[in-house]
Amino acid sequence: MISVTEAQQLIIQKAKLLDTFTLNLEDAFGYFLAEDLTAPINLPSFRQSAMDGYAFIHTDKTELKVVGQVQAGDTQIPDLKKGEAIRIFTGAPVPDAADTVVIQEHTTRNGDQLILDKLPHKEANVRPIGEQITAGTYVLKTGHQINEASLGFMAGLGFTKIEVYRKPSVTILTTGNELQKPGTPLKPNHIYESNGIMLKSALGRIGITKVQNLKAQDTLEATKKAVKNALQQSDVLLVSGGISVGDYDFVQEALLSNGVKEHFYKVNQKPGKPLWFGTSEEKSIFGLPGNPASSLTAFYVYVLPHLRSRMGSLLPFLNERKAELTEDITNKIGKTLFLKAGVADTKITAYTGQASSMLNTYALSNALLVVPETETDLKAGDVVNYMDLSF
């Protein structure tokens, strides 16, 4: 059994980058850049007016003559002399001779006569060439996750295609003869299968949509065959259940018989101690606990950062933040605890119902409160770390 820190180090060390491909910019949201981008042009590429108003050559005079107009997109720009002004609109090119734009709210106009009610400082409201970025400088670097702002930024520089890391295909393999598909009358001593839809949705939150759900019967041969098929079809295999030490837990043997190399089995934590991780060439395999809350915790703490790392992220783990405890917490078992919790303002409260089978409190949680294995007693008012689930 290894510590949480050791397990997290291993899942990053063994995260091989997926291959890259060229993608249309309009389809790139959520992907990670696989290249450093440099600006092909200055932005803006010409001097722009930052406001609606009047362009002029700065002077102490407060009365000017309006001699023309320019709007965004115009290519013919009127000439301008001292003592003259040109009506101008936001984003329009500033005439070469002009060095200042006065906003229209600070003027009074009567025909072609313009009175400056408030004289701006020289160069006011003029965006210089390259104010945002200059040609040849870095725009975004490898590992940047593309968001709506970076899409707009790249489009403004004229990019139409970029190189990104591929997202993985994933198979979720559930085991357990007691599991039954929702929507059918529940048989005696059965439970509805919930981990499949839960894990698929969690994958969707990090942009992975090529996901298939498979079911294996609780026999060694059926599990071995299901594992073999999944490894042939997907980059990543998440096995739900069957990884503990019961008489009908065949997952570990099935994985090893299919040539998967084990990197660790069991982590000193609660919930989710019976966690298995291995690789097979370019494939990643996690054996997750069957209990739903344990499975989801293992996903957040290990699977998510491993997948994000393979997708090119330089910051793969969920954000850790700090908050003040509202109640005492005792940890007498010498394990790292991941507690379902709620954060409001600067306070954090661990919910009741921490059992590994319980999703009712998980559904309300926006945080995983982390109690290190070395901490035995935390008091109300202590500042603690938590993993932010609002990602």
Rank of each mutant, 00 (worst) to 15 (best):
G143M: 09
E63M: 13
I133H: 01
G130H: 02
T137D: 02
P120M: 11
A124C: 07
P93S: 02
A98L: 12
A155T: 09
E131C: 08
E84R: 07
L64M: 11
N177I: 05
T75R: 11
Q76R: 10
G183R: 06
L179W: 05
K122Y: 00
G176M: 07
I115K: 14
L157Q: 02
G156I: 00
E131T: 05
P120W: 01
I133E: 00
K118A: 08
L173H: 02
I77E: 02
K81Q: 14
K122I: 15
R87G: 00
K61N: 14
D117W: 00
I103E: 14
I129N: 02
K118S: 09
R127E: 14
T171A: 15
V102M: 09
P128E: 11
G111K: 11
T175G: 12
G91R: 06
Q180G: 05
T107R: 01
G68C: 03
D79Q: 05
I103P: 10
T142R: 14
L80E: 07
Q180P: 05
L151F: 06
E84D: 11
I86G: 04
I133K: 01
G143V: 08
G91W: 03
P93V: 11
D96Y: 03
L64T: 06
V126W: 11
H144C: 12
D117L: 13
L80W: 08
P78Q: 01
T107M: 00
I86C: 05
G136Y: 04
A135W: 01
A149V: 13
H58D: 13
P78N: 00
F159W: 06
I86R: 04
G156T: 03
Q104K: 11
P182W: 03
D74C: 09
I162N: 04
A85S: 12
L114V: 07
R166G: 02
G73K: 11
Q69C: 11
Q71K: 15
F89K: 06
E178M: 04
D112P: 02
A135N: 04
A155Y: 03
N177G: 14
Q69F: 07
D99M: 12
G152L: 13
G111I: 08
G152S: 09
K81G: 01
P95Y: 05
I103S: 12
T160H: 06
L114G: 08
L151S: 04
P93W: 03
Q113R: 15
P120I: 07
D112W: 01
T59V: 04
G111R: 06
F89I: 02
V164E: 03
T100N: 07
G156E: 11
H121G: 13
F159C: 03
I77R: 04
I115P: 00
I133M: 02
L116N: 04
V94T: 09
E178F: 03
I88D: 09
H58T: 14
